[in-house]
């Protein structure tokens, strides 16, 4: 276990390092426009731009620039090129909205994904299964921002049931926080509910054919006990793995589309804005932040996986 943790930590650091280099190179080597022009403004003359290049160290060798940026990233002094705002502060400011969105949606998609998956498997081939299958197939075919747009049009404009986008902090007004988040939660969780219920259905059907389930029935366990203790326990393992990664991806920045449709001003929105401006420091900061979640949760998932399924060994 300790050896696993050390190896895994080394791997995490290496992957994050590689990601930071790639991100840096994408925006430096690819001719994506002169950052000096962006800082000095379009009306600037060549003298100011040369001054900016000198001040910001754009004339230094690439590796010096990279090291300087990483030093700033780690110490939290990373400053945006375009509006001179501290990247860490902006990120921290976005976290409550993103966390509210993703944690709420994750609870919804996990609950309904498992519920529908179990119902589908129990009624396999019969009417409830068919209905749920149709719903799941439609669910996984919906672009999230389009669903968001439709919800906004029909439920906030045509019929004023919900507030039209935006985020209200939980500490300010819990009721308003909740009503502002209902539609984003729904939109974000739809696709996942579809995926999870399909996956759980097929896992459960596989497990139900296993010999040990027949044994459990044969020794006279109640159907409920067989289902909960023997079938569900095994069928849920892949779901647990997947949930860890999906949650990490969504938390990192995967909810960009949902946040931008509903104007939630979270981390994803910040990413979208800074990428749109080709503003390297926030892009670097948010990419590493997002990648950290993925790498960190993958490690957690591996440990949980080994706990849930004793057949799996943690060999680094």
């Amino acid at each position: 276990m300790a050896r696993f943790a050390v190896r895994r930590l080394a791997n995490m650091i290496f992957v994050l390092f590689a990601i930071s280099v790639i991100t840096f190179l994408i925006f430096n080597v690819i001719p994506s426009g002169d950052p000096a022009l962006r800082i000095a403004g379009r009306q600037s003359n060549e003298v100011t731009r040369a001054q900016v290049r000198e001040d910001f160290g754009f004339n230094d060798p690439v590796y010096v620039q990279y090291l300087r940026m990483m030093e700033q990233t780690i110490s939290g002094d990373l400053i945006s090129y375009s509006n001179r705002v501290n990247v860490r502060e902006e990120l921290v400011r976005g976290i409550p909205a993103t966390a509210s969105l993703v944690i709420g949606a994750a609870m919804i998609w996990l609950f309904f994904g498992v519920l529908f998956g179990v119902l589908s498997a129990l009624y396999a081939g019969r009417a409830p299964d068919r209905l749920l299958t149709v719903l799941a197939m439609v669910g996984i075919s919906l672009p999230v921002f389009w669903v968001g747009a439709l919800l906004l049009y029909y439920l906030t404009f045509k019929v004023t049931l919900f507030p039209a986008g935006g985020y209200v902090p939980l500490t300010e007004d819990p009721a308003s926080w909740f009503s502002h988040l209902i539609l984003p939660w729904f939109a974000l969780s739809l696709v996942f509910i579809g995926f999870y219920s399909r996956l759980l259905r097929s896992n459960m059907l596989d497990v139900m054919n296993e010999d040990y389930v027949r044994t459990a029935r044969a020794k006279g366990l109640s159907e409920r006990r067989v289902l909960v203790r023997h079938v569900m326990r095994n069928a849920l393992i892949p779901i647990a793995t997947l949930f860890g990664l999906d949650f990490a991806l969504a938390f990192g920045s995967g909810a960009i589309l949902t946040e931008s449709v509903f104007g939630l001003q979270g981390v994803g929105q910040y990413v979208a804005d800074s990428v749109g401006n080709l503003d390297l420091p926030p892009i670097m900061g948010t990419t590493l932040y997002a990648a950290f979640f993925v790498v960190f949760f993958s490690a957690i998932v591996d440990i949980v996986y080994a706990r849930l399924d004793p057949r799996v060994r943690l060999n680094p």
């Binding site: 994408i26 990192g252 960009i256 990413v271 990419t287």
Partner: peptide, 15 residues
């Protein structure tokens, strides 16, 4: 580990 959407947006915009 690269967040897919973020990576795609970063590459897409830069290019």
């Amino acid at each position: 580990s690269f967040p897919v959407l973020l990576f795609a947006i970063a590459l897409g915009t830069a290019l």
